[in-house]
Design a binder for these strands. Structure first.
Length: 634
DNA sequence: CTAGGGTTAG
């Protein structure tokens, strides 16, 4: 209705103008364009422009472009642009830059680019605006090519340019170029600028060079929430959870106020460490400070609760969300998958597809397939995979989906099929895929296929110690000690390190870490004594040490001793000492649990009538009365 | 006029 009135009003003005313009007196607008624009009367302002013709001038065009930009009014802006051309108004760099920014913000990147290309003189702002628009719309390589063009044509970047160019490097995985830019930064002393420094350290962190990132962080003359969050996120994404937590605490002690991005990254670290109490505390802070409850933050809360074993909290958060993104669904699906609840995974996946608000993405399908895998639903998994190939989900399987199927078939003991499946892959199998098959061969004692897979794997990934360990493990299980020694010798030659296995358990607000044959824990003697006592009771209840889990060629007594030294057994024993009766013992491990420890935990739960929850690298195991929720299937 | 950090994956 209001528009109607305005249109009529415009017509009235038009009439008055056409009559008055026939007189000789100069055209006098009722209000100048700039004032009409600031009052939100864009249509009238455009009308003035038409009437004034070439007299619109710098201030008129400036105001008009500003107003069009505010309203993202593409049509109107295009009319202003056309008018400039028609009246042969050759705007200065400033106005052309405004035009460029206008097109950029309206997502008309080709038009923005054209404006830039046609500029007789470009300045830092025009270059930077173009680069940042490309960068923000996900066209990082275009952003970088404009940056390169700028450098070639002697344009001198400023802190704005560097900040945005570096983010483009991060997103386009252009670390090499980023390092060159780093050189320029140092030369022109921009490297201590906080915005530039943040994107610089973020770039190194995302490329996995966390030491470099930390150095830049430490050298910043000032720190703020964003630069701290960048380094926290960097640690969290690399799984360096303690460092992330430490930096967060430092942020607090330096009097900074975390925002929702900071909390999202912190929660990633907390879910890695399974620190549910800290996670709840963070959740409380978020609620008490009434921080905006963005999806990003809720997604990380869902992830934290589910990875800490509290699926019902995760689901409640999920259900209460107003706007769920694909990440929300994925986080929830992964939660069910890690708990082996294949049925829940499929049910939620069905809901997701019915709701049609967000589309499944590659991660969704990965979560669903791994859900089938952990839930012992191989045939369902296979048929979903076939559906992907047929185009049922809008997602074509990539290497990771193939890998997931190989993992699934391998886990269920269908080693030959898994081996055949690898041959069906459109691209060469990655080390990850071969690695999961090798692991399956170890579990199901398929020495022949395992040997060929293992040899191949060592060829393409000689630096990964895990490959040698599993292969020699496989040889060990077949009693082929000579091969074991050869592989171990090979491993030594390549001087590779393997991620040491460790387990931890929370007690009175602190984490107690154990590694194999631990001698560092303050209560180690108590633990060792208790372990002796436990192992006797366990054996009476039917625990037989699975000596094939020992890699080394030593005598049986020695092997048994080594088995009892496994970190998860130590953590479990400590739990029995420290955790009050009737409370479930919750242990976490950074690697996969071994067969012997799994069996140990089952019998442990029966003998001591204690529920045990163990989260390993892959999934949760809930032990109760001698049975594990994974059904001995992991 | 132009700028930095974000959740899910095996």
């Amino acid at each position: 209705m209001q528009n109607r009135v305005r249109q009529v009003f415009n017509l009235m003005i038009l009439f008055r103008r056409s009559f008055s313009s026939s007189s000789s007196s100069a055209l006098q607008p009722l209000l100048p364009i700039s004032q009409l624009c600031t009052n939100g009367r864009l249509h009238e302002a455009l009308l003035e422009m038409v009437m004034l013709g070439p007299e619109t001038g710098f201030h008129g065009y400036d105001a008009l472009l500003n107003a069009c930009l505010d309203k993202r009014a593409l049509r109107q802006g295009q009319r202003v642009h056309a008018h400039m051309i028609k009246t042969c108004y050759l705007p200065a760099t400033y106005l052309r830059t405004r035009l460029l920014i206008f097109y950029g913000k309206c997502d008309r990147l080709e038009d923005a680019r054209k404006v830039l290309d046609e500029m007789p003189e470009k300045n830092v702002v025009s270059w930077t605006a173009m680069i940042s628009r490309y960068s923000q719309t996900g066209h990082s390589s275009e952003a970088l090519s404009v940056f390169a063009e700028m450098m070639r044509s002697d344009g001198k970047p400023n802190e704005f340019t560097f900040a945005t160019a570096l983010t483009s490097c991060t997103r386009a995985s252009g670390l090499a170029l980023g390092k060159q830019i780093h050189g320029l930064l140092v030369k022109w002393s921009y490297d201590s600028h906080i915005f530039v420094g943040s994107s610089l350290l973020d770039m190194y962190a995302k490329a996995g060079q966390i030491v470099e990132a930390r150095e830049i962080f430490d050298c910043l003359p000032e720190r703020d929430v964003v630069s701290c969050t960048a380094i926290i996120a960097g640690y969290a994404q690399l799984g360096l959870d303690e460092e992330a937590l430490e930096t967060f605490q430092r942020l607090l002690s330096e009097g900074m106020t975390p925002n929702y991005v900071t909390y999202a990254s912190l929660l990633t670290a907390l879910s890695g460490l399974a620190l549910i109490d800290h996670g709840k505390q963070a959740h409380c802070h978020v609620l008490r400070r009434e921080l905006p409850f963005y999806a990003v933050l809720q997604n990380s809360l869902i992830d934290m609760y589910s990875k800490c074993g509290n699926l019902s909290y995760a689901r409640r958060l999920f259900d209460n969300m107003l706007e769920r993104t694909s990440v929300s669904w994925n986080a929830m699906l992964v939660g069910y998958s890690k708990h082996g609840l294949g049925g829940e995974v499929l049910e939620l996946f069905r809901l997701m597809r019915d709701e049609k608000r967000v589309k499944p993405d590659a991660v969704t399908l990965l979560a669903v397939l791994s859900g089938c895998s952990h839930g012992r639903m191989e045939d369902t998994g296979l048929s979903i995979f076939e559906g992907m190939i047929a185009g049922d989900y809008g997602i074509k399987p990539d290497t990771e989906h193939y890998g997931c199927i190989v993992d699934m078939l391998g886990r269920s003991g269908r080693i030959d099929e898994a081996f055949e499946f690898i041959k069906r892959m459109p691209s060469e199998p990655t080390a990850g895929v071969l690695g999961s098959l090798l692991g399956a061969c170890r579990v199901h004692l398929s020495v022949d296929i395992g040997e060929s897979v293992g040899r191949k794997l060592i060829e393409i990934e000689p630096e990964n110690a895990g490959n040698y360990v599993i292969l020699s493990n496989l040889y060990a299980s077949a009693g082929r000690w000579e091969d074991v020694n050869n592989v171990r010798a090979l491993m030594m030659q390549k001087t590779v390190t393997k991620e040491p296995g460790r387990s931890w358990i929370q007690h009175e607000q602190t984490l107690h870490y154990f590694h194999a044959n631990d001698r560092t824990h303050p209560r180690r003697e108590e633990v060792v004594a208790k372990m002796k006592e436990i192992s006797i009771k366990m054996k009476q209840a039917g625990y037989v040490p699975d000596l094939s889990c020992v890699l080394y060629d030593v005598d049986e007594e020695q092997k048994e001793k080594m088995l009892l030294g496994h970190s998860e057994k130590l953590a479990l024993t400590f739990g029995l000492i420290a955790i009050g009766e009737g409370i479930p013992i919750r242990v976490f491990k950074n690697l996969r649990i071994c067969v012997d420890c799994h069996n140990f935990a089952k019998i442990f739960s029966k003998v001591f009538e204690r529920e045990v929850s163990l989260r390993d690298k892959n999934r949760f195991h809930q032990f109760d009365r001698g049975i594990c929720s994974c059904g001995d299937y992991w």
